[in-house]
């Protein structure tokens, strides 16, 4: 297993009928890196991400995620990654404790470990008193932090964050990114999508998908220099503005 890279992808293609959703993309993500995966709606991000998470098989191409083959070792990939999206990450009609227990159980953690982790998590999130409340009742900012912690419950090598900060207020969004930094600082690789271009600046490297291809990939500073842009918003508009296909 290559220890330097958390993700290595070569010539990945995914076709649905005669529609090429992902068109021959290749990239590497280093361990502990915060990698921003950007693109306009319909550019192919979700399709590519589903393959990386072991939920879909590529039409052609190869690669490894957390050291496991994306074509043959999908179940191992699932055990070694965490996934969080803005929606669907928590069961609204289970309590906070029950949600933690459910996900801990799914990842095969021992009951004792789950109990310990639950207490630690509630403490860390400052929601000790909310443990028995239904997830549906929590403010959005808490839900996101809780989903994030739960996605990390089995200490995955890589965490996939699919638009993790949509709709939250500006301060909560920034505090969420501070926890992303802390997580990456502990060696976890972070793979993140977002529509907020200021958040693209917080990534170590960023790729921009256009019509199924990766048309730009570099550090935010590198991209700004290359496209003579003042910020990532301008870079995105330039690169994503080239799209030909509709969603």
């Amino acid at each position: 297993m290559n220890t330097e890279y958390a993700i290595r992808i070569r010539n990945l293609v995914k076709k649905f009928g005669d529609f090429t959703a992902v068109d021959n993309i290749s990239f590497d993500v280093r361990r502990g890196e915060i990698f921003g995966f950007l693109g306009a709606n319909g550019a192919g991000k979700t399709t590519a991400m589903r393959i990386l998470c072991g939920l879909s098989r590529p039409t052609s191409g190869s690669g490894t995620v957390a050291g496991f083959d994306i074509c043959r070792e999908q179940e191992k990939i699932k055990k070694n990654i965490g996934y969080m999206s803005q929606k669907f990450s928590l069961y609204p009609d289970l309590t906070v404790r029950e949600n933690i227990r459910l996900f801990g159980g799914i990842y095969g953690l021992k009951d004792r470990t789950i109990r310990e982790k639950t207490e630690k998590m509630l403490e860390m999130l400052g929601i000790r008193d909310a443990g028995d409340r239904f997830a549906a009742e929590l403010p959005l900012g808490w839900k996101q932090k809780l989903s994030f912690c739960i996605a990390l419950i089995h200490s995955p090598q890589i965490i996939f964050l699919d638009e993790p900060t949509g709709g939250v207020d500006p301060e909560t969004r920034r505090r969420f990114w501070e926890s992303i930094y802390d997580t990456a600082g502990n060696g976890t690789t972070v793979f993140v999508t977002t529509h907020y271009m200021d958040e693209a600046e917080y990534c170590d490297r960023v790729s921009i998908m256009v019509d199924g291809r990766i048309d730009a990939m570099d550090s935010p500073a590198g991209l700004k220099k290359k496209f003579s842009a003042g910020n990532m918003d301008e870079v995105f508009r330039t690169v994503a503005g080239r799209a030909v296909r509709e969603e």
Binding site: A40, G166, G167, H195, D233, F236, R237, A243
Partner: peptide, 10 residues
């Protein structure tokens, strides 16, 4: 414009 990318938003 929620969930819509930056280009479509403008």
């Amino acid at each position: 414009t929620t969930g819509v990318d930056a280009v479509s938003r403008s």
